[in-house]
Amino acid sequence: MSKIIGIDLGTTNSCVAVMEGGQPTVIANSEGARTTPSVVAFTKTGERLVGEPAKRQAVTNAANTISSIKRKMGTSEKVTAGGKSYTPQEISAMILQKLKADAEAYLGEKVTEAVITVPAYFNDAQRQATKDAGRIAGLDVKRIINEPTAAALAYGLDNEKDQTIMVYDLGGGTFDVSLIEIGDGVIEVKAVNGDAHLGGDDFDNAIANYMIQDFKNKEGVDLSKDNMALQRIKEAAEKAKKEEGAVYCDNDEHQPSVHHGSQWRAETFRHGSDTCKVR
C-alpha cells in the first residue's frame, strides 16, 4: 500500500512530508533541501526546470520563468512561457510533480495519494483548482486542508482543552493571520486577515535599504547604483535576517574591491524595527 504525502503548496516555497511510524517527516528534495521554491521555468533549449534550478536562472530568463503562481489559482488567467500557454493548475501541477518525484525517491515506492493545504481564505474555485493541479500531477488528492488548521493539528492542539488560537503564518510572499477555535476535537476557522503582499523578501529589502542608507551616511557613497555591491548587500541582508540577535555585517562582506579599500560596518539589531521599517 502506498503512503499518503502531505504537501504545503506555498506561494514562494513548497514542502512535502510523510508519516513514518506515527511521526511526520519532511522529505528533502533532489538537491538536499527541505523546501522547494515554487518556481517553474522553460529554458531556451526547451528544458523545463522546477524549484532551485528554475530560481537560479530567473534573472536571465524572466520572461519564461513563473513564480508565485498560487496568486493566480482559481482564476482563468493563463500564463505564457516557453512559447506555450498554461493554466495556473498546470503550472502548479509541475511543482507537485517534482515534489511527488522527490517523495518517491525518498520512499523507494510509488506515491499516488496526497493531502494538500490551502490558505483558509481560499474560495471554492481556488480549492478546486488546487485539487485539479494534484490530479494533473498524478495525485489523488484525498483532502484539501486549511493551512492554519494543519498547523494546529501538527501541534496536537486538537487533543488539548477547548481553546481559541491565533495562527501567524509569515511566508515568503504573504502574511496570513487566522483565528481558529478548537472544541470537542473540531477545528473551526473563525476569521482571517493579513497582508497578501508581505513576506520574507520584504524584510530582506528593508534591511538592505537600511545598509545602503547607513553606508551613504558614513561614506557618502550610494551603493544602490552599483549592481555588484547591491547584489552582495542583498545576500548579506538575507543572511542577517536569518541570524537572530545583533548581527555585524563587516567590511568583509563589502567593498574593499569596489570602494577603494574603505571599511564599513552595519549593525542590525533584532529589536531595531524603528530603523528598519518594513512598510
Binding site: 534550478p53 534573472v59 536571465t60
Partner: peptide, 24 residues
C-alpha cells in the same frame, strides 16, 4: 543553472548568448 546562480543580466555583444559574463 545546476552550477550557476544568475543574479545579474547584461547585454554584451562581445559575448555569446547565455554565457557567464562575470563570476561575482
Amino acid at each position: 543553472p545546476n552550477y550557476h546562480n544568475a543574479v545579474m543580466h547584461v547585454e554584451d555583444d562581445s559575448l555569446g548568448e547565455n554565457v557567464v559574463a562575470k563570476d561575482l
